[in-house]
Each structure stands twice: as structure tokens, then as C-alpha cells.
Simulated assay, not measured.
Amino acid sequence: MRIARFVTPQGQMTFGVIDGTGDKSGWTIEAIDGHPFGELARTGHRWSLDDVRMLSPILPSKVVCVGRNYAAHAAEMGNEVPKQPMLFLKPSTSVIGPGDQIRLPAASQHVEHEAELAVVIGASGARKVSRENADAAIFGITAANDISARDLQKSDGQWGRAKGFDSFCPIGPWIDTDMAYDDVRIACAVDSQVRQDSTTARMIFDVPTLISYVSHVMTLLPGDVIITGTPEGVGPIVAGNTVTVTVGDLELTNPVVDDE
């Protein structure tokens, strides 16, 4: 099932279920009553995807990020592979949806893309779950882009500012509740030029390990997001670029502009 958050032609913000196969031009979205967690109540109100504005599929209380979770990316950054997951946070205010603008701050002269698989936590949340029970905490999978001000990351010595600017966490375009996560293509293209192209099978710490590890540090609430690290090939983005992150059959596209 594909779960999205969108604005109807009448201007109402709501969650919905996307239906369709094959050519996306024929896909539709049906509004649901309330939140997508739990039993879904379809309303019967349906629109073409072309007639609605897609938003980030969830507004998490927090985005938990995993650094250096692909060996080749750690190597390209001149870092060692961590012995346990390396965690940092992005604020909820950094989250934007498909089509929204990535805004480059004047404080940075070197901003980069990082394509990532994102895990959305389900209705029961997660606290001190075992690796074996981690799948039960997953609501679904989506795509994310861990935008990073690389110069600030180096100069600050910690990552809060470099990773936390408004618009620095595109998520979407929807949540796939059925996607397998263990061997999924993950890629990033800038102006149609592919820069990152790998698979989640190359993660150092897999998804169940990450969920268990994070949940022993902090309680994961329903709708929280874990972004699971980026493969090699990260690179700069500048105003005028268009960035597309691919995770399986999910495509998350955002234009890049200078912040005013």
C-alpha cells in the first residue's frame, strides 16, 4: 500500500491511499479519515495525482540519522567504518516534501546530496525492541535526502548545524508499506546525471539492527523516521540543480535554490 499526505484541489490537507499500476499518469489518490496508523477508513473522495499537491508523507517528531553506514562512503570521506551505528538527529523543521525547494543557506559554500532509504515507525512506536522484533515496528519505507553543508560539518566539529537547516531533509514521495528493505537500489541523480548508485545490501548495519540500536537509546514515536545512511558518490549541489533520489521504485525530486 502507498500512503501519502497531500493537499486536495479544495485546499484541504489530508492523508490518502494511492491506487494504480503501470503508467503513473493513471494513478489516483483517495483521502482517508484521520491518521494512516491503525485501520484505514477510506472516504471515497478521490483525485488524479496530477490534481493534488504532494507533501512530505509524514511529519516526524524527530529524524534519526545514521552516519557512515556504507563502507565505500566512509572511505570516500576519509573515515573509518564505525564499530557501532553512528547517530545524529535532524530537526522536524528540516523536513520537506517532493517538489519542495532545497534552500541553500548563505552560511555555507559547499552543500551536498546524500540519498538514503528511510524507515517510518508504526503506530506502536519502538522502545528497547530486539533485532528479531524490529520489523513489527516498521510502518513502511520511503526515500530521503540527507542534505549536508559539508564545510560547516568540518568547521563545527559536530553535525547539528550542517545537517539541520530548514529544507535539509526531503522525504517522500509516499510511504510504501510493502517494500522489502534488504536489497533495494538506492541512487541519486543531479540534473539527470547519476552520481550515487548502490544497494541497501551494502549497509554495514542493516535495518533491524538500526531500529533495535536506536530504540535502546531513545523512544521512537509513531511516525518517527530513521534514515539509514548513504552510499558513495555524494557531491555538491548548487542553485538551479534538480536532485532526484531513487529508492526502489520511489523517486523523490527537489529543485535547488539559494535561500533568500
Rank of each mutant, 00 (worst) to 15 (best):
V129L: 14
S130A: 11
S130D: 06
R131V: 15
R131E: 15
R131F: 03
E132D: 12
E132N: 09
N133E: 13
A134H: 07
A136T: 11
A136G: 13
A137V: 02
A137N: 05
I138S: 11
I138A: 10
F139L: 06
T142S: 12
T142L: 06
A143P: 03
A143M: 03
A143C: 06
A143Q: 07
A143T: 10
A143L: 08
A144D: 02
A144H: 03
D146K: 07
D146L: 10
I147L: 03
S148L: 14
S148V: 07
S148A: 15
A149V: 11
A149T: 14
L152R: 04
L152K: 01
Q153E: 12
S155G: 00
S155A: 14
S155P: 00
D156F: 08
G157T: 02
G157Y: 09
Q158L: 05
W159K: 00
W159P: 02
R161E: 09
R161V: 12
K163P: 10
K163A: 05
K163Y: 07
D166G: 05
S167T: 15
F168M: 07
C169V: 09
P170S: 08
G172H: 10
G172A: 10
G172L: 08
P173L: 04
T177M: 05
T177H: 01
D178H: 12
M179A: 10
A180T: 13
Y181L: 02
Y181D: 09
D182G: 05
D182N: 14
D183C: 06
V184Y: 04
R185C: 02
I186G: 03
A187L: 01
A187G: 00
C188A: 13
D191N: 15
D191R: 06
S192D: 14
S192A: 12
Q193K: 14
V194I: 15
R195T: 01
D197E: 08
S198W: 03
T199K: 08
T200D: 12
R202D: 15
R202N: 15
R202F: 13
R202C: 06
M203Y: 02
I204G: 06
I204K: 15
F205P: 06
F205W: 11
D206Y: 05
D206S: 09
D206A: 00
P208E: 04
T209M: 05
L210M: 10
I211F: 08
S212L: 06
S212R: 07
V214K: 12
V214T: 11
S215A: 09
H216P: 11
V217T: 14
V217H: 12
M218Q: 09
M218N: 03
M218R: 07
M218H: 07
